[in-house]
Computed example of a mutant assay.
Amino acid sequence: MRTLGILMLALRSLLTIMLGVAVVALVNQAGGALADLVRFPKPGQGRLAWDLLVVFAAGTLGAWVAVRLAPRAPCRHALYFFALSLAIAVFAVMKLGADWPGWFSAGILLSLPLQVWMGASWAIRRNAG
C-alpha cells in the first residue's frame, strides 16, 4: 500500500507541473487573441513588447499554479517547473531565434527566473496565509 501512495503522490506532482505548463500555453493564446481583438498591429516592436509581457504573465501564473497545487514540497515543484520551462524556452529561442530580435529572445530567457520566483512566492505566501 505504501508503494501505491508514493506512486499517486508522484502522479499528482507530475500532473501539477503539467497543469502549470498548460496554463502558460493558455495564457499565451489568450494574450495573442486579445491583441488580435484590439487590432494590435502584428509586425513591429510594439507587438513583440506586448507578446513578451504576455509571456511574463503566463510564466508567473503557470508557476503559481504549479506551486499552489503541489501536494508536497512546493519549492521543489517550482524548481521542476523552472527546469521544464527553461528547456521549452531554450528550444523556442533556438528554433525561432533568427525570426525574433535579440532583445525578445533575451527577454524570454532572462525573465524566466523572475517569473517562477514571483509565481512561487505568491503561491507559497497564499498557502501560508
Rank of each mutant, 00 (worst) to 15 (best):
L114I: 12
G5Y: 14
L26D: 04
A89E: 04
A120I: 02
N28V: 08
W103L: 08
Q29K: 10
Y80P: 00
L4H: 12
M118A: 15
F40T: 06
H77T: 01
V54F: 04
R39L: 11
M118D: 01
G62T: 03
G59Y: 08
T16G: 10
G97E: 02
G46Y: 06
L110Q: 07
V54Q: 04
L52C: 06
W103Y: 13
F91N: 08
K95W: 12
K42F: 11
L110F: 14
F40S: 10
S121F: 06
G102M: 10
G31T: 06
G32P: 00
H77V: 03
L114Q: 07
A73V: 05
S105C: 11
V67Q: 01
L19N: 04
T16C: 13
I17G: 03
T60D: 01
I6G: 09
A49V: 13
W122Q: 07
L86T: 04
G107T: 05
A25G: 11
L114V: 14
A123T: 01
R12A: 12
F56Y: 12
R12D: 04
A87T: 05
G31H: 08
F56I: 04
L9P: 02
G102F: 11
G5E: 15
N28C: 09
V21K: 10
V38P: 05
A10Q: 13
I88V: 13
C75N: 14
I88T: 05
G59L: 09
C75A: 15
Y80K: 10
I17K: 03
L86W: 09
A35H: 10
V90P: 00
W117A: 15
L26A: 15
L110E: 03
I6Q: 15
T16M: 02
A87M: 07
L52F: 10
L96G: 01
F56S: 07
L15P: 00
V90M: 10
G97K: 02
V27A: 05
D99G: 15
A66H: 02
G97L: 04
W117E: 03
M118R: 07
R68D: 07
I17T: 09
M8Y: 13
A58K: 04
Q115W: 05
V116W: 01
G59Q: 10
P101K: 11
A49F: 14
C75E: 15
S121G: 14
Y80C: 10
A92M: 08
V24S: 03
F91V: 09
R126H: 08
T3S: 14
F82G: 00
R39C: 05
S121V: 03
A22K: 08
Q115S: 07
A35T: 09
A128R: 14
M1L: 13
A128W: 01
L34D: 01
L86R: 06
A25Q: 14
A78E: 01
N127V: 04
A120M: 07
C75I: 11
L110Y: 12
K95E: 11
L84V: 13
A106F: 12
A10M: 13
A57C: 13
L53D: 05
F40D: 02
V93K: 03
G44F: 08
M1H: 14
